[in-house]
């Protein structure tokens, strides 16, 4: 027992790592599953980043739609990213984070467009910002906002 008290800090951090890994991975798997499912479901609603409606399309209605999400990285991934930053290179753990955030934001935008019975969303823009940047040692989280103009085709 004595050694456990001595190494308490290490032990504590290790626990956080394990918890972070377990729950983080579970959450990520679930999130991706739901993203895949909804992407399939909303595939009929078309998304373009062009500013003007495709030539020859008759549009009956247009409205701004937005979708945003804040996602945070787990303790384990942050630890791995911290190690990775010493070496440099691709931060895989953050890549999945931004990928998830972006797709979720687009999906939420689509959901809003579907409520308007739209057929497509054009001029889609995606913005990312990190909301907890200033404080050191804070868990990194990003906000992704997707917006565009929903169109109703004739």
């Amino acid at each position: 027992m004595e050694w456990m008290l001595q190494y308490f800090e290490i032990f504590f951090a290790l626990c956080l790592l394990i918890v972070g890994y377990g729950f983080g991975r579970l959450a990520e798997k679930r999130h991706y599953k739901s993203i895949f499912k909804r992407e399939k479901k909303y595939q009929e609603l078309l998304v373009f980043s062009l500013k003007t409606p495709p030539e020859g399309l008759t549009v009956t209605d247009s409205r701004l739609v937005t979708g945003s999400v804040v996602v945070s990285i787990d303790y384990f991934k942050k630890f791995v990213a911290g190690l990775r930053m010493l070496v440099g290179g691709r931060l895989r753990s953050y890549e999945t984070l931004v990928d998830r955030g972006r797709r979720e934001a687009v999906l939420r935008m689509k959901e809003q467009a579907l409520l308007l019975h739209a057929d497509s969303v054009i001029n889609v823009k995606v913005e990312t910002s990190s909301i907890s940047k200033g404080r050191r040692n804070s868990i990194g989280s990003i906000e992704v906002c997707a917006y565009g103009t929903a169109l109703k085709h004739a």
């Binding site: 890994y21 495709p54 791995v80 990775r84 895989r92 753990s93």
Partner: peptide, 28 residues
Amino acid sequence: KKPDLSNPEIPEGINASDEHPLKEFFWL
């Protein structure tokens, strides 16, 4: 003419790799 519009499904694994995170962790 009506334009040809579609949103084909994009394959996974381009923006986020599927590699097991523990592998990278231990190597690092």
